[in-house]
């Protein structure tokens, strides 16, 4: 009798409506709703939904492109800059984010070096933009094929392998770049200590890409374009790159 009851209960649970075991909303539905908010100039709601998608792990250039559009229209140029840098990272061959980034950078009055990802980061970006990985893969496959057969063409294979590795080098070297972030808050202060009552030693420029040197609680240690080192609140500097 008890077994029967358990079975019936299990059956009821399995047949219960969605709210008993809440299924997460599909990413595409959230994206569509966010786009609808943006299209109707409800920027805050749109940004909220785009943020939710990011937290869910959606990694789409379109997501960050739309996010940048909404943030830019909302007046959050720094956040738009961050979203465009992410979109560019995900789709380096797409000219849209690159062009839009230049426009936002100009509006913020930033120098190209102030939104730079550093030497290795920029090299990696160029390599990804021109699909060095694809060319390298083809060359390496060719080098392997050249070794197969009765008469292996060793020299040709070696040269092809080395060329492939050379093309891969910026991608491999920049695979683990030093962490960087974007100042998304206007007039965000640079503090001398990681405390709320610290002294504000300067003001950060919105949209500026800064290296993240360390993390201390709610603060990150950064260095701005002028070389000044200090602490910024994590809410003011949003990290680039994906975990």
């Amino acid at each position: 009798m008890t077994r029967l009851r358990i079975c019936l209960f299990a059956l009821v649970l399995c047949e219960s409506p969605g709210y008993v075991f809440a299924q997460p909303e599909p990413v595409s539905a959230t994206f569509r709703r966010a786009n609808e908010h943006a299209a109707r100039s409800r920027w805050d709601e749109a940004l909220l939904d785009y943020g939710r998608l990011d937290q869910q792990g959606a990694r789409s250039p379109s997501l960050y492109w739309n996010w940048a559009q909404a943030a830019s229209a909302r007046g959050r140029k720094g956040e738009a800059c961050w979203a465009l840098l992410r979109a560019r990272e995900l789709a380096p061959t797409d000219p849209g984010p690159r062009r839009e980034l230049n426009r936002v950078r100009g509006e913020l009055g930033l120098d190209p070096s102030e939104v730079s990802l550093g030497l290795l980061g920029e090299l990696r970006l160029v390599a990804r933009r021109f699909r060095f990985d694809l060319i390298a893969l083809a060359l390496i496959l060719l080098s392997i094929v050249a070794l197969v057969g009765k008469q292996p063409r060793r020299l040709f294979s070696l040269v092809a392998s080395l060329c492939g590795l050379l093309l891969l080098s910026p991608l491999l070297m920049g695979a683990r770049p030093s962490p960087r972030g974007v100042v998304i808050q206007k007039d965000a202060p640079l503090l001398d200590l990681p405390r709320n009552d610290a002294l504000a030693i300067s003001t950060l420029r919105e949209g500026e890409v800064v290296p993240l040197l360390a993390e201390e609680g709610e603060f990150v240690r950064i260095q701005d374009a002028s070389g000044a080192r200090g602490f910024a609140h994590k809410a003011d500097v949003r990290k680039l790159g994906f975990d």
């Binding site: 379109s62 390298a136 695979a175």
Partner: peptide, 23 residues
């Protein structure tokens, strides 16, 4: 006007790890 994108497209595939393994 904002220029939104409707499709949630995929990020560019990075072939570098595969190429490195093959290398």
């Amino acid at each position: 006007p904002v220029a939104l994108r409707a499709d949630l497209d995929e990020a560019q595939t990075d072939l570098a790890p595969a190429a490195a393994a093959l290398a």
